[in-house]
Design a protein around this nucleic acid. Structure first.
Lengths: 119, 119
DNA sequence: ATTCAATATTCCGAATACTGAATGTAGTAT
DNA sequence: ATACTACATTCAGTATTCGGAATATTGAAT
């Protein structure tokens, strides 16, 4: 009875996805890698809270972190969630650019592709 | 800001899916409509517990019930979950047929297509 | 009307998750 | 060394969920 294991694993994945803020983070990251402060600015949530949710996503293997100087950039690591997001949230359009964001990507002071950014 | 609503709704759906027994029920139903006692037999869980989970699935609009004499048959109503199940659980193979099941479908005493069974 | 079988609902203690506040860590600059 | 910035972790109170037990409802048969 190994299918039980499959149910448990899929349930664990769904549990991680069953959270509006975490979904929004994934939605942000499918537009490109972003640092914590940018995610915080886009969502309007405090940094500590975002860090918490990122930890959960990281533990589930959905995202990975890599440090770039002072900032930590996150990227999607599980390509299987992309079709799910597309089906329910639509195609990813352009990147968000909040007013008050001071991250290197938003201010244009990025020191060339952070941690081998995809595409 | 209507995307927040989309995140909330998708999160609500994922929350319903984030449960091994409920996933197994959906996995059973994608092989065809089944009555509660059959689901109970396949999963090995008590009837009351299955009814509980079915209520949650029903409230989420994922399944619908229809009575056929003494039995109540359940069917999938949201076709959007099928690709998700296929991606993570594989193609649905043949129907389960537990030894101790006394449901009309298993004993072959079904009075012609219950509630307009699909296919 | 009574009984039975199939299913549905309610209740409750235990476990788990959520979320804000406070604090800790790591890298950079002076 | 100190200060600062960006991020991570821990803690605690609250809310929610889990899963079993008991009970209710519904339809069929006698």
């Amino acid at each position: 009875m190994d299918t039980q294991q499959a149910y448990r694993e899929l349930a664990r994945l769904c549990k991680v996805l069953a959270h509006p803020t975490r979904l929004q983070i994934l939605d942000i990251l499918r537009r490109g890698d972003e640092c914590v402060c940018h995610i915080s600015a886009v969502t309007g949530k405090r940094q500590a809270y975002i860090s918490q949710q990122l930890m959960i996503l990281r533990a589930a293997g959905l995202v990975a972190a890599c440090r770039e100087g002072l900032n930590v950039f996150y990227k999607l690591t599980d390509p299987a969630v992309l079709p799910l997001l597309e089906e329910y949230l639509g195609k990813a359009d352009e990147r968000h650019r909040p007013e008050q964001c001071r991250c290197p990507k938003c201010t244009g002071t990025l020191s060339e592709s952070p941690c081998s950014e995809r595409r």
